[in-house]
Write a protein that binds this DNA or RNA. Structure first.
Lengths: 209, 209
DNA sequence: CGCTTAATTGACTACAAGGTCAATTTCTTG
DNA sequence: CAAGAAATTGACCTTGTAGTCAATTAAGCG
């Protein structure tokens, strides 16, 4: 969906500009859809439902989005942005493989849990169009590949025991993706707590003794 | 689907009885559907596709099954049977919490990977009918609850460190459910290998040092 | 062979839900 | 206020696919 522009005027108004309102509403739409997707799954979520939840008609949604698939695609992209952020952070502050992994995991989980709506969609990978699947798949591969290399680094620098990097990454990614299904922001465990606990579990699983 | 019986005759023939053939074909249908479900997801799998893969018409499927939902339901039940088997085995041969968990994990994963078709469906939980979801959900809860108690046992008997039982179980269940998405029976890692590795990772994550 | 039941087919229906579009209301601005 | 653009609506079209059913073919059996 590409927004057709309209001249924004010489100076920003105090209230929101049309473009900002557009962006805001679109975001609300994405959030609501993502929430619904994670609850009932992509295919069982009708756009009519989403629209109703937003107090609007299905037709209105199509003003902000080309089609249903675009929503899902956008959600996936948003989720992967968190991965990128986490990588950046880990790379900057970690001093060896083990530290970087702990930071990566913890940061990633904190971001995910803080804005879960966008991410609960990770499980809906095969609801993506083949074309989109290719794009998202590539991004996921990049993430996992980086993660795997981190494990190898850790083994090389002695901070980790000798585990299978590939399986270790899969092991953890599963735990994370699954998290998006049971995590409840208003539940007994806070996102930070879970992030810390999971990071601790993984760390214990792979650190050198 | 309840099979309407027909008198089976006085002695079992050398060849398959009709009932046996029925059961066999039905099983083949379930396997094929499960395979398709795990590849493309429940909703993106049309029964026409499944039928075609079996060299038959969609209508023929309805001779063995009441509806599409029954297939999914059946697959879920099958998957959980593995869980029960694994519990039984672990309970019989494990001598403390840690041992039981290792056995449970390993057995469960070996069963899953050996007949993955039936289990790749675990991710399609919310494609279940509300009624069926309740049934399967209850069964899943039972499994997870048993697992959790095992962790508590392990902590109590000193074989495990002090981890959060609930989060630990979720952590692992995620890894398992995710496995069903990437595991390839003809891939580089055998099911046994993965079972062993995963069990090792979890064990390292939670054992007392 | 000929009767009965199992098994399968193909044509058909039902319907949910994605998507379109002209018409209408609401906003913004000169 | 008036004009034009933004935003939204409701009616409608389209399609994919689950599910039905009478009719047909294949199997078993006396």
């Amino acid at each position: 969906m590409v927004r057709r522009g309209r001249h924004a005027g010489a100076w920003k108004n105090v209230v929101l500009t049309q473009d900002e309102q557009f962006a805001l509403k679109r975001r609300a739409l994405l959030r609501q859809a993502a929430r619904a997707f994670s609850e009932k799954g992509y295919h069982d979520t009708s756009l009519t439902d989403v629209a109703k939840a937003l107090g609007v008609t299905k037709s209105a949604l199509y003003y902000y989005v080309d089609d249903k698939q675009e929503i899902l695609f956008e959600c996936h992209k948003l989720s992967h942005d968190f991965g990128d952020q986490a990588i950046e952070y880990a790379e900057k502050h970690g001093r060896n493989g083990r530290e970087k992994i702990s930071l990566l995991v913890r940061t990633y989980l904190e971001l995910l849990t803080s804005e879960l709506g966008a991410c609960a969609v990770l499980l809906e990978f095969n609801a993506l169009t083949p074309a989109n699947r290719k794009i998202i798949g590539r991004r996921r591969d990049t993430f996992e590949h980086y993660f795997r290399k981190l494990v190898q680094t850790g083994i090389a620098d002695g901070s980790l025991r000798k585990v299978d990097p590939k399986l270790t990454v899969f092991f953890f990614m599963g735990a994370v993706n699954w998290l998006t299904r049971w995590f409840d922001p208003s539940g007994e465990h806070s996102g930070e707590h879970i992030a810390k606990e999971f990071a601790g579990l993984l760390d214990a699983a792979i650190r050198s003794r």
